[in-house]
Design a protein around this nucleic acid. Structure first.
Length: 579
DNA sequence: ATCTGTGGCGCG
DNA sequence: AAAGCGCGCCACAGAT
């Protein structure tokens, strides 16, 4: 018979036991997944020898506050979930968490057979099959718990502890302890961001959507007039029955008016008859916005908070970047009309801070290219300098800006392993010309080329790439003779250390920003992050101070990884998500 | 009716 | 399968 703690005396009695344990496992059973609406039913805590189950319907875990907020390490599976639940229900922020799910993602980055559920990990590391069906039994549960429910709750603690033991050995073997530590320390920041959410000006958003809907209709009318001659009209005469969202139907329709295309991508469509092409692209643009930001998007506004609480996958990308969903706040149109709808409540401000030229600085650091390094050291404009040297003309943001734009495309394309064909397409120049440009580029910056090539070679040899912070991204090479596969991995491998180091930096900055605002007890909270950007919401009276904290933390985090050049952070204090 | 894969496109 | 890296979302189309 498993004992359940349901009064404050018993709870206080276990504290000495917990204090003597060097590592605690924690788990919760809740009525659902929404921290604002679901209740914590059970809170389990303990080590391999002793586990305690607390009935949170009968007793608050307040007496455990000191232990939970302390530096004592606590291991959980999918820690961010329990963190948010406990944060909301008990106003306690669990600190120094270790997450077996995140560690597994660190160990498996890039591998296709990664499985991250507790049941998967138990099978992999403990050779144990666990029945997760019991978990569902807690949804909307009331009354006494069954023996099997309690057993399930107790066992989870033992599983995570034993899984962690095995994982730590793997981390040491792969030299991934630092990355695992970074990820685990960042859990709280991502938990906070999700919990805090962002406020959206719903009325303004809806107005823009309405405008977009009208523009879509207008574009549709123009398309109808173009395709009317070849269209079968519907029975009641009038509307053209082509679905412009269907690439097949669009291709057929174009063929009937004498335009043959292999695909309907923007690149292809922009080269057909400009009047028709423009009409299609206009339609697409507005259709995209209406569908992406319409009803489905607004349904993400939480009924209790009135805010949008997305879900971050802290290791959503094999590079080490985070991804974001439901909704994705990392791909909101940069067009200020949309971002400016994300606002600070009255009396508050948003501080938006981002790393300037983050990835190019990382390339400079890793390649040791003197021009790149010197440009960043002296605060010059790398795109202009690159443009001047490969086009042999004076270029700045004002002089020959179109050449600067081209150089920018080259600079970024390069970091992704772009070839002449891709460059030709993106600059709309003949392939021959693109080849020459690339040659000029690499002649001017031989160390950049050398670095990128070496980066790819090492990855192919070892089977993984490494960031400056030691994060690994693995490659599964199926057939070393498959040129296409190898070429693809080469491009991934050129990019991985760059993108991954940038992710390392931003995550470290998030950790330090959260720590700083907490220690200084400033009325500020993290609300979003977009790869090289961090957004914070704060009381207007501490906006300037918060901005300085963000800037300092971001620069320090950058300098933690990059030693050969300065880090620059730009920030804005605003009423909305706009610089 | 629900699923999975694909094309297209939004962001960094 | 892959001629530019990393994501998520929508609509479509074909399958179940």
């Amino acid at each position: 018979m498993i004992k359940i703690i349901d009064n404050i005396n018993e709870l206080e009695n276990i504290i000495p036991d917990l204090e003597s344990m060097p590592l605690l496992a924690i788990d919760t059973e809740t009525t659902g997944l929404d921290p604002y609406r679901s209740k914590v039913l059970l809170f389990q805590i303990g080590d391999l020898e002793k586990q305690f189950i607390i009935d949170c319907r009968k007793v608050s875990i307040e007496p455990l506050r000191k232990i939970l907020e302390s530096d004592k390490p606590k291991v959980l599976q999918n820690a961010k979930f329990d963190y948010k639940m406990v944060k909301h229900s008990f106003k306690i922020e669990i600190e120094n968490m270790i997450d077996t799910m995140l560690i597994e993602q660190v160990l498996m980055a890039g591998k296709s057979d990664g499985q991250f559920g507790l049941d998967d990990l138990a099978e992999k590391y403990l050779n144990t099959r666990i029945d997760k069906s019991e978990r569902k039994s807690f949804i909307d549960h009331s009354g006494d718990f069954t023996e099997s429910q309690l057993e399930y709750a107790q066992n989870d603690l033992i599983y995570v502890l034993r899984i962690l033991e095995s994982q730590v050995k793997a981390l040491v073997k792969e030299n991934l302890q630092e990355t695992a530590k970074l990820e685990c320390m960042a859990i709280n920041a991502f938990g906070d961001i999700e919990y805090n959410g962002m406020l959206l000006d719903k009325n303004k958003w809806s107005e823009i959507l309405e405008e977009e809907f009208m523009k879509k209709k207008e574009a549709e009318k123009i398309l109808d007039s173009i395709f009317k001659p070849i269209s079968e009209l519907d029975l009641f005469g009038g509307s053209v029955n082509i679905n412009y969202d269907s690439d097949e139907q669009l291709k057929d329709a174009l063929e009937k008016i004498g335009i043959k295309v292999n695909d309907t991508s923007k690149a292809t469509i922009s080269h057909i008859d400009p009047k028709i092409g423009q009409a299609i692209l206009d339609y697409r643009e507005h259709q995209k916005v209406v569908s992406a930001y319409g009803k489905g998007f607004l349904e993400h506004i939480h009924p209790d908070t009135g805010r949008i609480h997305p879900t971050f996958r802290q290791l959503g990308a094999s590079s080490g970047r985070t991804s974001c969903a439901d909704p994705n706040l990392q791909n909101i149109k940069a067009d200020s009309r949309f971002r400016s709808c994300f606002i600070a409540p009255s009396g508050r401000k948003l501080v938006i801070a981002d790393y300037s030229g983050c990835e190019l600085r990382i390339i400079a650091e890793l390649s040791n290219d003197e021009v790149f390094l010197e440009t960043f050291r002296t605060g010059g404009d790398l795109h202009s300098i690159v443009a001047s040297s490969i086009f042999k003309k004076n270029v700045s943001k004002t002089e020959n800006p179109e050449l600067r734009q081209k150089a920018k495309a080259i600079n970024f394309g390069l970091a992704y392993g772009m070839g002449a064909q891709g460059l030709a397409a993106s600059l709309e120049i003949p392939e021959k010309e693109a080849e020459e440009l690339l040659e000029h580029y690499f002649n001017s910056y031989p160390k950049v080329k050398k670095y990128l090539d070496e980066s790819a070679n090492i990855a192919l040899k070892r089977g993984y790439s490494v960031t400056i912070g030691g994060r690994k991204r693995y490659y599964e090479i199926k057939d070393r003779n498959d040129q296409k596969e190898i070429a693809s991995i080469i491009r991934q491998a050129k990019n991985a250390p760059i993108q991954g180091t940038s992710a390392d930096m931003t995550k470290l900055a998030l950790i330090w920003i959260r720590k700083a605002i907490k220690e200084k007890n400033i009325d500020a909270k993290l609300v979003n992050t977009v790869h090289d950007e961090i957004v914070l919401e704060c009381d207007e009276n501490v906006a300037e101070e918060s901005a300085q904290i963000m800037r300092d933390c971001m620069i320090k985090a950058g300098e933690y990884y990059l030693h050969k050049l300065p880090i620059e952070v730009e920030y804005a204090i605003s009423d909305c998500w706009q610089k």
